[in-house]
């Protein structure tokens, strides 16, 4: 075979390796780099999405808040007892202003375990994992979470517990953004259930259960 042809073939083979090399590199990009986008058409469209920046507004935020002092239709939240846990003036309602049902308690348990248990612990006695870690780290600024099954909290009116969830208390921040009024009452009901269970005596058990335990 004439030499020029051999050279041309060799060059062709060498050139054909270049895309393969690029592909290999794209396959082995550093993890923190965006992946290769082969056909990028319309993947990223020019509209503003939730939680993104927006140069149109002074605060640079795409998601807008309702104007101050406005209330969406049907969202007035006028009932002080239900939405603020207040009976009159600054007196908290003693009891939960809703019918406590089994589904409500189940919901309360689920929400309690998500939002409260990290600090207060699943049994409510203040031994959550975050508390354990803060202690292990020797955090001087950490305040131990309240034991929700203590007599102090048992004696508190339901509205007080609701208000604590909604607005926070001392070093505990507000969980109003995470828990709707309905959920706050469900958690309040579950806290009451925890208090009942943690402070129960054998005498509180049904007769059959007591018999099964040999009491």
């Amino acid at each position: 075979m004439p030499r020029p042809i051999i050279y041309v073939l060799l060059v062709l083979v060498a050139v054909s390796l270049v895309p393969m090399g690029l592909l290999y590199r794209a396959n082995h990009l550093p993890k923190n780099q965006p992946r290769l986008q082969v056909v990028p058409d319309m993947d990223q469209q020019f509209y503003y999405k939730a939680q993104t920046e927006n140069p149109f507004f002074a605060d640079g935020v795409t998601m807008r808040k309702p104007p101050a002092g406005t209330v969406a239709r049907g969202m007035l939240a006028a009932d002080d007892a239900y939405f603020r846990g207040i009976a009159r003036d600054t007196i908290f309602v003693a009891e939960i202003p809703a019918t406590v049902t089994r589904p409500m308690l189940d919901r309360g348990r689920e929400r309690f375990n998500i939002y409260c248990a990290p600090c207060h612990g699943q049994s409510g006695n203040g031994n959550g994992m975050v508390h354990a870690r803060a202690q292990a780290l020797g955090e001087g600024t950490w305040t131990p979470p309240t034991d929700l099954t203590s007599q102090t909290v048992v004696d508190r009116p339901a509205g007080h517990i609701y208000n604590t969830i909604a607005n926070g208390i001392r070093t505990m921040p507000s969980y109003g953004a995470q828990l709707s009024p309905e959920d706050r009452w469900a958690v309040t009901a579950y806290v009451r259930a925890l208090q009942l269970s943690r402070n129960a005596t054998p005498a509180d058990l049904p007769v059959e259960t007591r018999a099964a335990l040999g009491q």
């Binding site: 592909l23 396959n27 993890k31 780099q33 082969v38």
Partner: peptide, 14 residues
């Protein structure tokens, strides 16, 4: 290779 999902998405950890 170019269009494989392994190439285009998996492993991204910014």
């Amino acid at each position: 290779g170019v269009f494989s999902p392994q190439n285009s998405a998996i492993g991204y950890a910014p």
